[in-house]
Simulated scan of single mutants.
Amino acid sequence: MKGKAVFLDRDGVINMDHGYVYRPEEFEFIEGVFDACRHFHRLGYLLIVVTNQSGIARGKYTEQDFQALTEWMKARFASEGAPLAHVYYCPHHPDHGKVDERNCNCRKPRPGMLVAGIHDYGLTAENCIMIGDKRADMEAASAAGIGRRVLVKSGQSLSPSDLSTAHSVWPSIHEATRAILA
């Protein structure tokens, strides 16, 4: 299979979603995330994070704060044998920040970050997987043509209509890994 990646939401998939996390001491990795990502990496999948970061537009933290945390997170993944190819992020929010950025194409459920990853890395969308914890993650993946959409319950509360947007639903990324690749 050529040109494949696992797109990962951050808060609720990689780390516990404590709200506007931007410092390493607040960042709590979800149990089993490194095992799952190592497994995908060994199978030849690129690991790409796609994350809405409205805390930047809301003034909760700066892009520099986010970048510092991202570099720390990438170093942890690399040291665990699961290097992240890229971290795409949307710093916008429709109700906050600069007016000309409020209707961006990168904020999920829009597909901009996924489309950028597909383009930048020469991926075949049908060969890719999106793992997220929100309906918006699944809607972005669907709009980008991602072949497999997986919701995990380690982040948000999900309604029956949210669940219907995914191909499968699992308690966390760790439990989903074997089933996704079966």
Rank of each mutant, 00 (worst) to 15 (best):
T62H: 07
R148N: 11
T70C: 11
G155L: 13
A75G: 02
A140H: 03
F34W: 13
V169R: 08
A144R: 12
R58H: 08
R38H: 04
F77I: 08
Q156S: 10
C106V: 03
E26D: 15
D65W: 04
S168G: 15
A5R: 03
Y20Q: 04
R38A: 05
G32T: 06
P160F: 01
A136W: 00
C128L: 10
R58I: 12
H18F: 14
R149I: 12
E80L: 09
C128Q: 09
A82N: 07
K2C: 00
E25W: 03
S159W: 05
A176R: 04
H93G: 05
R76W: 05
W170N: 09
V115N: 11
C128H: 09
I14E: 05
K134M: 02
E25S: 04
A125H: 14
H167E: 12
T165C: 13
L8W: 00
H41K: 02
C90T: 00
N105W: 10
D95H: 14
V49R: 10
V13Q: 03
G12A: 12
Y88N: 01
R149P: 05
S172W: 09
C37L: 13
F7G: 02
G32N: 06
G147M: 08
R102K: 14
R58P: 02
H18P: 01
V87K: 07
N103H: 14
G147A: 12
N105M: 15
A179G: 09
D162L: 04
V99K: 15
A5Q: 06
P91E: 03
C37F: 09
W72D: 05
L8P: 01
A116G: 04
Q53M: 08
R102Y: 14
G112Y: 13
N127W: 10
D137M: 00
R23T: 13
A57M: 02
A141P: 01
S54K: 04
I48Y: 10
W72C: 02
H39K: 09
H93N: 00
R10K: 15
S154A: 11
F66Y: 12
C106H: 11
M130C: 09
S54T: 06
F77N: 02
I14H: 02
G32M: 06
E25M: 02
A179C: 07
C37A: 14
R135Q: 10
M16Q: 13
D162S: 05
Q64N: 02
M16F: 08
L158Q: 05
T177S: 07
A85V: 01
V152C: 01
C106R: 06
V152L: 05
D17C: 12
C37G: 06
T165R: 11
A85E: 07
G59I: 05
L151M: 06
E101Y: 14
D162K: 07
